[in-house]
């Protein structure tokens, strides 16, 4: 048994590809399920959120313009890097969620597999959701799904890794970019996941992860004019209607999510992918 003093990590935000502290200088203590201190997390502010939306918007052009094959490879790379850090995540998930190590390992494995699943979707969405439209006239008409833009995500409060991956990976698979507010009580796996993203060829700004309070940041995210879609999975139940109403100000797509957190180990289906995509129909005349 080593008596070495371990090097504790400072958990920061993940914003525009960098790991800054909150501009507000605020932090809050994070404990394990038993109440034991784990670390201080950055307590993101409204200004951090605005920075994050700006970074996500800037990153959108290139990420949405990347080939589906390329995006698939990047997502697969995330799975590869995550796989290599299974032990670290297992420990963090076990501590955060208060589950046995065996169960935490299952959750981490499922998270890795989920990245692989979504990696495979990038170049199939257009085939499955698009169409050649048999219009009644001398025109060629086709419809193709496109990413909606910047997706604001209030991540699940309970499932610190698998839940987070289940709401984040589909955003990336479609070619949208994300501003994510992590679980307030269980934010550490989210920031460690950001380290994985930062080293997996995910371009900076494509994912922006803020630790802090969904109740505090949610209203700003819901009302922000440069956010195109909103996932309220981790929103406090009593705030849902208010956030949906704020989203109406810029006609955001608000995902239909269950009132309580679903079982994330269930196969996800494609509803979430579909609801953050736009369908574009193109027409051109035919003639010799």
């Amino acid at each position: 048994m080593s008596d070495r003093i371990s090097v504790a990590k400072t958990y920061k935000l993940y914003l525009g590809g960098a790991f800054p502290r909150s501009e507000s200088g605020r932090t809050y203590p994070v404990t394990d399920a038993g109440g034991k201190f784990l670390a201080n997390a950055a307590h993101a502010s409204r200004k951090d959120l605005r920075e994050a939306v700006g970074a996500a918007r800037t990153a959108f052009g290139k990420w949405s313009g990347a080939t589906a094959y390329n995006r698939g490879q990047v997502l697969y790379r995330v799975a590869e890097v995550l796989e290599g850090r299974r032990e670290q995540f297992t420990a963090e998930v076990a501590a955060s969620e208060g589950v046995a190590v065996e169960q935490a390992r299952t959750l981490v494995d499922a998270a890795v597999d989920r990245w692989v699943w979504y990696a495979g979707w990038t170049d199939k969405l257009a085939t499955v959701l698009g169409a050649a439209n048999p219009v009644a006239g001398p025109y060629f008409s086709f419809s193709v799904p496109e990413p909606t833009g910047v997706v604001g995500v209030l991540a699940p409060q309970r499932s610190s890794l698998l839940g987070l991956v289940s709401v984040l990976a589909p955003v990336l698979a479609t070619g949208s970019t994300a501003v994510v507010v992590s679980s307030r009580e269980r934010p550490l796996p989210a920031i460690t996941l950001a380290e994985v993203l930062a080293t997996s060829d995910v371009p900076g700004g494509v994912v922006n992860l803020l630790t802090g309070s969904a109740a505090e940041l949610g209203p700003w995210l819901a009302a922000h004019g440069d956010v195109n879609a909103l996932d309220l999975t981790g929103a406090p139940a009593e705030l849902r209607a208010e956030l949906e109403a704020a989203a109406a100000g810029t006609v955001k797509r608000v995902l239909r999510v269950p009132p309580t957190e679903p079982d994330w180990t269930e196969p996800p289906g494609i509803t979430r992918l579909r609801s953050i995509m736009e369908l574009k129909t193109v027409w051109h005349p035919m003639g010799a």
Binding site: A131, N133, P134, V135, A136, G137, Y139, S141, S143, E278, L279, K280, T281, V282, W283, H284, P285
Partner: peptide
């Protein structure tokens, strides 16, 4: 935009999502 008309405009059809 949800519909792009190239070298035409204002075409509609029940089979073409709008």
């Amino acid at each position: 935009a949800g519909v792009v008309w190239a070298n035409t405009f204002n075409r509609f059809d029940p089979t073409a999502p709008f």
